[in-house]
Simulated assay, not measured.
Amino acid sequence: MRYFFEIAYNGTTFHGWQRQKNAKSVQQEVEEALSKVLQSEVSITGSGRTDTGVHCLQQFFHLESDEALTEKLSFTLNKMLGPDIAINNMFQVIEEGHARFSALSRKYEYRITTKKDPFQKDFKYFLNRPLNIQTMNDAAALLIGKQDFESFSKVKTEVNNFFCDITEAEWKVNGTDLVFHIRANRFLRGMVRAIVGTLLDVGFGKIAPEEVKNIIIAKNRKQAGSAAPAHGLFLTEVTYPPEIVKK
């Protein structure tokens, strides 16, 4: 039987989602807790990977179990896991349901504040330089559609192709906060932070909005801007077809 778990976490103290040999990861923490509860070695598959310091409001992982699992497992896991990880839901899915490959879309938000706030220093990028939001949104509109985003990917990454289909890319202002919303069917390693860094260069007037199209065409990471700091980035939503849920 296959089960999906909905998870959220504060990424400040983690070296990303994926298990690593000599670094603390979210996947490792969850697998170790599950192995203790279920009294057997457990391996989980996540809907994707987040980088060091990136936060998550909604992500999913799946696991296989020979025995039926109940909601009590979520309660027990939340007691065992530290305060930076929360299991918010669990449900059985069909055998073909896959946390990564069945996902229809993922959404990220990049959060910036123009007002220094010591209580949000780990969750928003403090930036007190003036920005032209209109030109940033003009540039963001050029990201929409299925395109090759190699220019915004980390150089050393194992993927079959660099094509992503972006359906949403927009900056929104709320008082002293500025949030970038981006949704796509998939994302490359470091892609959102590289996009944000490039759009900030547009907002600073370093490059023209239309230059973003040339950066995409170049397929060269050196042509794009520097990656924005990790702590402003949140994975906020992963969507799946409703038919994967076991009736």
Rank of each mutant, 00 (worst) to 15 (best):
M1I: 09
M1Y: 00
R2T: 03
Y3N: 00
Y3V: 07
F4S: 10
E6Y: 04
Y9K: 15
T12R: 14
Q18N: 08
Q20T: 06
K21S: 09
Q27G: 07
E29H: 10
V30K: 06
E32W: 04
A33C: 03
L34A: 15
K36P: 13
L38C: 08
V42A: 09
S43N: 13
T45N: 08
R49N: 00
D51E: 12
V54T: 09
V54S: 02
C56K: 03
Q59F: 01
H62A: 13
E64S: 13
S65L: 04
D66W: 03
D66T: 14
L69V: 09
L69E: 09
T70H: 02
T70I: 06
E71S: 15
K72N: 00
T76K: 14
L77Q: 06
G82V: 12
G82K: 13
G82T: 13
P83D: 07
D84T: 11
N88P: 03
F91I: 15
E96C: 15
A99G: 00
S102G: 01
L104P: 02
S105D: 12
Y110V: 12
I112V: 12
T113S: 05
T114H: 10
T114E: 10
K115T: 12
K115I: 09
K116E: 05
P118E: 08
K121V: 09
K121R: 14
K121Q: 05
D122L: 12
F123Q: 04
K124M: 14
L127K: 09
I133R: 03
T135G: 10
M136C: 06
N137S: 08
N137D: 07
D138V: 10
A140E: 05
A141M: 12
L142R: 13
L142V: 15
L143F: 02
Q147R: 12
F149T: 01
F152G: 02
T157I: 14
V159H: 05
V159K: 04
F163D: 05
I166S: 10
T167P: 12
E170S: 09
W171P: 04
T176Q: 10
F180R: 04
I182R: 03
R183A: 05
L188H: 01
G190P: 05
V192S: 07
V192N: 00
R193M: 05
R193P: 02
V196T: 01
V196H: 00
V202C: 00
A208S: 10
N214H: 10
I215Q: 00
A218P: 13
K219T: 01
K219Q: 11
G225L: 02
G225W: 03
A230H: 02
G232L: 08
T236H: 14
E237T: 15
P242I: 04
